[in-house]
Amino acid sequence: MGLLDYFRATRPKSANVAKRRLEILVAQDRRTQGEPSYLANLQKELLVVIRKYVNVNDDAISIQKEQDDDREILEVNIVLPDDGGNDRY
């Protein structure tokens, strides 16, 4: 690390912007890369079924597939609204 590195840090440079954008994007790509392609559809259809009974938002559901050594786990999280979503009935 030379003296020049100190000067580099003070410049608002496009390379820094590029790196920041890449870090976010690549992390996101890596999360979704191993996912089976049916997950997005499954999520949509589950949401429709759940809404028959409870009034939830689009972002109330999240699905993740995890892999242990000897088994795969499909984890479905549904967050119910504070009022229990009962106002539908």
Binding site: L4, R8, K13, A15, N16, A18, L22
Partner: peptide
């Protein structure tokens, strides 16, 4: 261009 901050450095690419 790296020195001018216009291009990702090798270290940046390696980090990612």
């Amino acid at each position: 261009r790296v020195e001018k901050g216009e291009m990702l450095s090798v270290d940046d690419v390696l980090e990612i």
